[in-house]
Simulated assay, not measured.
Amino acid sequence: MTTTRTQRGLDRVVSFTDAAVAIAITLLVLPLVDLAATEDVSSVREVFAEHWSSFLAFAVTFAVIGRFWVVHHRLFESLQDYSPALLVVNLVWIAGIAFFPFSAQLVADVSDDDPTSVAVYVGTMVVVSTCLGTMAWIVSRHPGLERADVRGSVRVRHSLVPTGLLVVALLLALLVPAGGLLWLLLLLLTGPVGRLVDRALDR
């Protein structure tokens, strides 16, 4: 059994990952399609008014998955090879992405009755973000995985800041569930906190 890794193998990893992300995003809209098919209402406005949480969960989760995909794309765009460890962590990342439609539906349907649904949602984000950080760490430890023209460009610290903020948001969601998805606004601090970390580590 050969262990040779080829460019075709890396292309298959990327294609499989992109397909999984596309399917997850498609699954997000299915509950909204069901609403359009089953709701007996006199106007579209009523559908939005009665099910605003479902539309909010769709919009937020689409943006979240899209952002995670962009970061993942940038990382893999810099690669010329992959390792077994990178492959395993990438599969866990895909699992987290695939779980988003379920966690989004929890937030839309039962957030009033079970505030921990927001914690499940944010926890999913923590898992996915941690996987991105782990993959960046693997690449930084094995520079040969990167293309020669961008070697050394992957910085683990850039993944640690959003992951740390998500962990804080998760703790706050558990301790003060009334905040709901608003705790995700902590991610707006990614830029300022990242610059502080860069200055501290570059001294």
Rank of each mutant, 00 (worst) to 15 (best):
R141A: 14
R151N: 10
Y121P: 14
G96V: 08
W93E: 06
S159H: 14
P115C: 00
P101R: 04
G144W: 00
S129Y: 10
Y82R: 04
T163Y: 08
L79G: 02
A136M: 12
A104M: 12
V161S: 11
F99I: 07
T130P: 02
L91P: 04
E77V: 01
V89M: 07
W137I: 11
V88H: 07
V167I: 15
N90E: 11
S78N: 01
V150N: 02
R151P: 11
V88Y: 05
S83C: 03
F102R: 07
A95D: 02
E146I: 06
T134E: 07
F100P: 10
S117G: 03
I94P: 07
P162K: 11
L87E: 09
V122H: 08
V128L: 10
T134C: 09
D149H: 03
V150R: 13
L170E: 01
P162Q: 08
L160M: 13
L86F: 05
D113E: 08
H142T: 14
G133H: 12
S140K: 15
V89H: 03
V92H: 02
Q105R: 15
L87H: 13
P84M: 03
D112V: 06
L132A: 07
L166T: 01
G164R: 14
L145G: 09
P162N: 10
V161R: 07
A173S: 15
V92R: 00
P84W: 01
A136Y: 12
S117M: 03
Q105L: 12
S111V: 09
S129C: 09
H142Y: 04
S153H: 04
M125A: 15
F100I: 06
F76V: 12
S78G: 07
V156K: 13
S140W: 09
L132V: 05
L160V: 15
V107L: 02
H142P: 03
L86I: 00
V167R: 10
A169Q: 05
L91W: 03
R147G: 00
S117C: 01
G96N: 05
V150P: 07
Y121L: 06
